[in-house]
Design a protein around this nucleic acid. Structure first.
Lengths: 216, 216
DNA sequence: GCAAATTAATGATTTATTCAAG
DNA sequence: CTTGAATAAATCATTAATTTGC
């Protein structure tokens, strides 16, 4: 498994200290040409050759002790943080860092480069993802506590507003599907569920129904 | 895009129209008289004193968990939210709620009444304050980061990471170009070097001192 | 034990929202 | 109202965990 990976990927690992402008964004070509319209042109797709050029060793190893330097450290695939890197990032996060600026990202990158391959964007994305997922976790738990905490005796009144997705009761639901084309839209708002029981005199939708606080 | 935005925004308060509920504010007239920047305020937002009583009774929590019920929970002083209440409110806030309408406030009040004394106006003010303070915090941090980055006069905090730094181009040119015309607002790439001015003179990098003051 | 098959995590991108100048 | 700037949310995609049949 890992061996296979290493074999198949190892040839990316040229020590090209490429200074090419192209970096390894996977779909850079799409990004550039992304008119999202039907541009018939199938844009020059990034070839493996092009991809290859981007590989850069942020700091190159210094030899690095021993050989823990496998494919995960060498580039060509997505960043696979080492334990040290993760520990450091989590320490920073715990210290309060959430959205490091360019300077900070650069420093972190340089520092963590000592432990293995890493780029600035990895740091950036890590914080984005970590923050988002912490938030999600917290939200979920908070919602849960809202719904069934307290004395538990009552049915969750506000919880109906939050339905993140459809019921989980369906166990025998086709398993294939959920990973497939989940075009399902998550329930966005609660206002939709917050059906007022009466007196909806006005049917018009307001974009900003009440903004008493604005103005300065 | 705009259409989508409007549609999606409309969910904020779809049912807020013409709710004749009252939250129990003492100075609702003030709120009502606040400048409504949006032309048709068909919203009798939170108005009319007549229903004050209606919301009031929602705070009589039947169970009231009388133990540890000190003065702050019993009334007579200003609302002192419990942890549960704060968690719930923050969950709602994170879920997207900013300016709940009367119905929503009523429901929230009833629900949170299970955790302790609370009135509709507490909920209302909480959202007002929370929103405002979040904004203030954000503004402050933005200013801080601006002033912090010493030399640079107008560097966007994070997006600068996406800017492909090219040698000595002029600023205005940079500004125009960094977004690849108007077709796609996609930024370039991380590229190899994010130009940072080393004003520290210190090459060593500590992880923790990077940005310890952040946090929330 | 061991890989294929499957599932869970998470890195990387894209899209939607928010705020507030213009 | 429109749009720029920044971010957060949602999504896509790949890797690691793990399960499973042998």
């Amino acid at each position: 498994m890992e061996v296979q990976q290493q074999l198949s990927l190892s040839f990316w690992d040229q020590d090209s200290t490429s200074s090419s402008l192209n970096i390894g964004l996977k779909h850079e070509h799409l990004i550039r040409s992304l008119p999202s319209k039907f541009t018939e042109s199938t844009e020059p797709v990034l070839t493996s050759l092009q991809l290859k050029t981007f590989v850069k060793h942020s700091n190159n190893n210094t030899k690095s002790s021993s050989k823990t330097l496998d494919i995960s450290q060498s580039g060509g695939t997505r960043w696979n943080p080492t334990q040290e890197q993760i520990r450091a990032l989590e320490a920073l996060y715990k210290g309060g860092m959430r959205t490091p600026n360019a300077n900070q990202i650069e420093r972190i990158t340089i520092e963590l480069g000592k432990y293995g391959r890493i780029e600035g964007k990895n740091v950036f994305y890590w914080f984005q993802n970590h923050k988002a997922r912490e938030r999600q976790k917290q939200k979920r738990s908070a919602l849960l506590s809202l719904s069934n905490s307290s004395t538990v005796s009552h049915p969750p009144p506000l919880m109906s507003l939050f339905i993140e997705s459809r019921g989980e009761e369906e166990e025998e639901e086709d398993k294939k599907e959920w990973c497939d084309g989940n075009k399902k839209r998550r329930c966005r708002s609660w206002s939709e569920e917050l059906e007022v029981d009466e007196d909806e005199g006005d049917g018009t939708l307001e974009l900003f129904p009440l903004h008493p606080e604005l103005g300065r």
